[in-house]
């Protein structure tokens, strides 16, 4: 299996969300994900990059193929140095929002992906890592 370098995208503006979606779509498609899974992964990426833009103002997204245990998949990392999340379990509750959003971005992304890790410290920033595996 080939090891590609992680692609990194800066999220500074709304239009970067589209760029991120495109990169994720291309990566997931080339890894062999089916259309519905590609749409799931891209939609999660759209939610999580928008969170960076709305809540932190700016940050980065990294997208890379991963392999472990004869499984292959894709990993997306969303990192910002924004205000952080005080109550993570609240933020993960469907419908909870501090911005008149639908409050579905975090809980929904978790459901669309196979794995999600959320680390956040108030005043320091937030890192969300999501992964999806092929032929799960």
């Amino acid at each position: 299996m080939s090891i590609a370098l992680a692609d990194e995208i800066r999220i500074d503006s709304e239009s970067d969300i589209v760029v991120a979606r495109k990169l994720v779509r291309d990566t997931a498609t080339s890894l062999g994900f089916g259309l519905t899974d590609v749409t799931r992964i891209v939609t999660a990426a759209s939610e999580l990059t928008r969170n960076i833009y709305i809540y932190a103002g700016s940050g980065i997204m990294r997208c890379r193929p991963v392999a472990s245990d004869a499984r292959r998949g894709v990993e997306l990392v969303f990192e910002d140095k924004g205000p952080g999340i005080a109550d993570i379990s609240k933020a993960m509750t469907p419908g909870y929002t501090t911005s008149r959003g639908m409050g579905m971005g975090l809980p929904g992304s978790k459901r669309l992906m196979d794995e999600m890790d959320l680390k956040s410290a108030v005043g320091q920033g937030t890192t969300v890592v999501v992964r999806k595996w092929l032929h799960k």
């Binding site: 749409t39 799931r40 639908m102 579905m104 929904g108 669309l112």
Partner: peptide, 14 residues
Amino acid sequence: MRADVAVTATQLGL
């Protein structure tokens, strides 16, 4: 609406 988009939107909770 495309089938894959409908599945995803539902799973997202929209």
